[in-house]
Design a protein around this nucleic acid. Structure first.
Lengths: 202, 202
DNA sequence: AAATTAAAATACCGAGTGGTACAAAATGAT
DNA sequence: ATCATTTTGTACCACTCGGTATTTTAATTT
């Protein structure tokens, strides 16, 4: 948050609100089809001129990467912190299910996890965005793995599976839930499926 | 397959090979991002002029619907027939896993199920295609449900879940597998995940 | 041979894309 | 007041999209 407080000594004062643009862009990518969502549309929605957007984010790739970083900070990090706390495994798993199936938006529109959504269309995004996706994926898997390992040492997890695989399995099931929510499947149904899929972990 | 044998009495003879266009289109939609794949590109790949394609399929929506129907006939139907046979539940489930994780293409490129891929981007497709997707989805769920019910009466399936939910669960897991394959996850990993996810069904 | 019929492809349409050149505007420094 | 500096937005670029009007070509019928 240091970026917006530094003011240049001379020149026309900046009016572009970086955070506002990122909010609008994040919301847009989240709700609409990423591939069909143009920069023009984001400019329209955020009330920013196209050159202004390019000056701030270089190009579409830069904007998407910035959106992903913001998403990590605002949405993913709290979940990871929850996993890092001393919540018992089963309870943390339930929290995870709640996170994954919570309808996070005030209005209608599709839901799901923006990161997973972008990961699914990874190949068609820019290089910077791809790298950020890969980074978040790797980081997420490491988090899951460490969490499982900690739970094993605490004796809360005794299924005979490698922590690595369990992390992959959880990631897969959460991805599935996100995809289904985005498709419009009822959250209760998604929740039921997650419960059954995770029932093998105890 | 009657469509191509009827020959008009007069006029310039037809040279457009409908099946060839459908093959190319199916392959293209399967491997590439559907949203980024233009009719121009399909014309280029199939060696057909654009008006030719429009004469045959009316528009993009018509082509996609035709592709979906072809996919159902060529890929989905054999699977459903397998489920309709008297194969024991567990064996049929294993077959299903094999189907879902088989790398079906000669060359590199992404894999997965085209139907599931199109279902995921349903909202952005044409009306006819949407209707076809809905039809195939409903039909698939009915198939799964009947299969589970038959297995229950045969005593091969004794888990306490409604056949309806089991059908939904299986559909969800297969969708997940398809999405992962399309994303480039190793088929063996996908297979492992499916095995674990389906282990609750026995 | 002429007329009819149908399918062929070229060449175009308006709209939208990601991206940029450029001049007006707004400030501080001289 | 003028200059230097920075941000602003208009207006444009080449390109691609889905879709079509139009003319040419190849066959049968008369």
């Amino acid at each position: 948050m240091i970026s917006n407080t530094v003011k240049p000594v001379r020149g026309r004062p900046k009016t572009l609100d970086r955070d506002h643009v990122l909010d609008v862009a994040m919301d847009s990518y989240w709700k609409d089809n990423i591939g069909n969502l143009s920069l023009n549309e984001i400019c329209r929605r955020s009330g920013v001129s196209k050159p202004g957007l390019y000056r701030e984010f270089s190009n579409e790739d830069g904007l998407m990467k910035a959106v992903l970083i913001r998403y990590q900070e605002q949405v993913l990090e709290p979940v990871q912190q929850m996993l890092n706390s001393d919540v018992p495994f089963r309870e943390a798993l339930d929290n995870l299910i709640s996170f994954a199936t919570s309808v996070n938006c005030h209005d209608e529109s599709p839901n799901g996890c923006l990161f997973i959504k972008m990961r699914e269309s990874r190949v068609h995004l820019g290089k910077e965005t791809q790298a950020q996706i890969d980074f978040l994926e790797k980081q997420g898997l490491v988090f899951f793995k460490k969490w499982v390992e900690r739970s094993k040492t605490k004796g809360e997890f005794s299924v005979d599976m490698s922590s690595e695989f369990v992390a992959t399995y959880i990631d897969a099931q959460l991805s599935n839930a996100s995809t289904q929510l985005a498709r419009g499947v009822a959250p209760e149904t998604v929740k039921k499926i997650l419960l059954v899929a995770f029932s093998v972990l105890e």
